[in-house]
Simulated scan of single mutants.
Amino acid sequence: MTSITALTSIAADFAHDQAAEAADQIAAEVLNIRTLEDRGRDRFDFHDLHVGNIRRALEAAFNAGVETALQAAETAEEHQAETDTRDTAAADVEISLLETASHADAAERAARNASGAESAEAAIAAAAEAARHAQKANTSAEEAGRTANANPESDGAQEFAADARHHVGRARSAAAEAMRIATGWHAE
């Protein structure tokens, strides 16, 4: 979640970008001053102004500030929504990563069971279980990859997807080992 400080910074940047433009517009429209640039001449840089015009200029500046603040708040909310989307994507990919790792662990357990099997049937059953978990790990990793690809701006999602692919490799290796053991049993 984005901090209040970060959101305030976004709003301040937005407001600062518009301040000079608003000041120039108010000076021109309300005070009949062509530019607020210092031109180095008293007759251009000093102006006699009616109090009513000054009041209207200050009110216009206040209203511009309120409008800018509302626009800045909207921009900050949009930024927050984008951040929330990235955080959600990373969380979704992390869930897929955990599922992938769990299936890889199960495939490795099944491979150990195949290694310690006392019969060809037990070894084949363990190898089949390892293969099922390897397939489930692959499915979870594919889901992680799809979510990460749909959210390329989420660094967390990208990292979790890479970790999920690593666990698929573990699961496949375990399944291959279990199949090799079961095939060795079956050959006897």
Results as ranks from 00 to 15, higher is better:
Glu29Lys: 03
Ala107Gly: 02
Thr183Met: 07
Gln25Val: 06
Arg170Phe: 09
Ala81Trp: 13
Gln135Lys: 13
Thr100Gln: 05
Ala23Val: 12
Ile95Glu: 11
Gly156Met: 04
Gln18Thr: 01
Arg170Thr: 12
Ser154Gln: 09
Ala137Val: 02
Arg132Thr: 11
Asp87Ile: 03
Gly169Val: 00
Asn32His: 04
Ala106Gln: 07
Thr85Ile: 07
His133Tyr: 04
Ala89Asn: 10
Ala60Asp: 11
Arg165Glu: 10
Ala157Trp: 01
Thr2Glu: 10
Leu7Glu: 08
Leu98Asn: 15
Ala127Lys: 03
Leu58Thr: 12
Ser102Asp: 05
Ala22Pro: 11
Ala120Val: 09
Glu121Thr: 00
His47Asp: 05
Ala130Phe: 04
Ala90Met: 02
Ala20Asp: 05
Ser102Val: 02
Leu49Trp: 09
Asn151Lys: 04
Ala28Ser: 09
Ala61His: 02
Val66Ser: 06
Ala131Asp: 09
Leu7Asp: 04
Ala20Thr: 10
Thr85Phe: 06
Glu21Ile: 11
Ala130Glu: 07
Glu118Trp: 03
Asp42Ile: 14
Asp155Pro: 05
Ala120His: 02
Asp163Cys: 08
Ser9Arg: 15
Ile10Cys: 02
Ser115Ala: 12
Thr139Lys: 13
Arg180Tyr: 06
Phe46Tyr: 14
Ile26Ala: 02
Ala114Val: 00
